[in-house]
């Protein structure tokens, strides 16, 4: 770009070069271990990546992109834990939840299509017919959004991520708190993703949330009920 053209753009109030590149970025960022699983090193705009097996994995996929200014919508998941999302690094003020996307297929399709128009990432946990899923994949490709079907069969997805949670650490018999676990994620797909890949992802990861650990006081070994003072049980 010539010098004068740059000057004109600045005069017109067009933002700095950084803004332009993020607006046009072809791939949305995801954190390290997950990037290795995806053939594009991130979530490519216009692609469909189906997720199964772990809500935390879905939220972790949304995290880096929303933190960088993208907007994400989660459809049909009324029990989505926003606090866990925040702890995994999702910027929750750029997260929209549509817990009940309508009754019929056509309403669900309209809702998801409307969200694909405006959001960068749209996760859908409502099962749809084969025809609807195809239409929505096309819509995502056209609108340069990332469609993330979650825990529902979705024929035609570019990549399918299946999580198998491993054992938790940190919790013992009567003391400790849940700390983290390693989730094995297997990626299969079509085209560039045809070669299956596998990665072990700690969820929550080490660098996710500033975890506040309380001081742990070991509980006394349980004694027979009769020895207790008659305080009111809860």
């Amino acid at each position: 770009m010539s010098r004068s053209a740059t000057a004109t753009l600045t005069a017109l109030g067009v933002g700095a070069a950084g803004e332009l590149t993020t607006a046009l970025a072809r791939t949305l960022p995801v954190r390290g271990e997950l990037a290795e699983l995806l053939p594009w090193g991130g979530l490519r705009r216009g692609s469909t990546v189906s997720v199964r097996g772990s809500t935390s994995l879905l939220l972790a996929l949304l995290a880096a992109a929303t933190a960088e200014g993208c907007w994400a919508a989660v459809v049909g998941l009324p029990r989505c834990g926003a606090l866990a999302a925040a702890e995994l690094g999702v910027a929750v003020h750029r997260l929209a939840l549509v817990p009940r996307p309508g009754r019929g297929q056509s309403e669900v399709e309209k809702t998801v299509a409307a969200l694909l128009d405006g959001f960068d990432l749209v996760a859908v946990a409502t099962s749809v017919t084969r025809a609807t899923s195809r239409k929505l994949i096309a819509r995502a490709r056209h609108r340069k959004a990332v469609l993330l079907p979650f825990a529902v069969p979705w024929p035609g997805a570019d990549v399918e991520l299946t999580a198998t949670p491993g054992p938790w650490t940190g919790l013992n018999a009567g003391h400790g708190v849940l700390s983290t676990r390693t989730v094995t994620v297997r990626a299969t797909g079509r085209g560039a993703a045809a070669r299956p890949r596998q990665a072990r992802v700690p969820l929550p990861g080490a660098g996710d949330a500033p975890t506040r650990r309380p001081t742990l006081i070991p509980l006394p070994a349980p004694a027979p009920a009769s020895a207790r003072s008659p305080a009111e049980a809860v």
């Binding site: 919508a73 549509v98 996307p101 959001f119």
Partner: peptide, 17 residues
């Protein structure tokens, strides 16, 4: 997009945490 969905499903359909 959110306003559009609110138009389709009602104002309480789109929630932000």
């Amino acid at each position: 997009a959110m306003v559009h969905v609110q138009g389709l499903l009602g104002p309480d359909a789109v929630l932000t945490p």
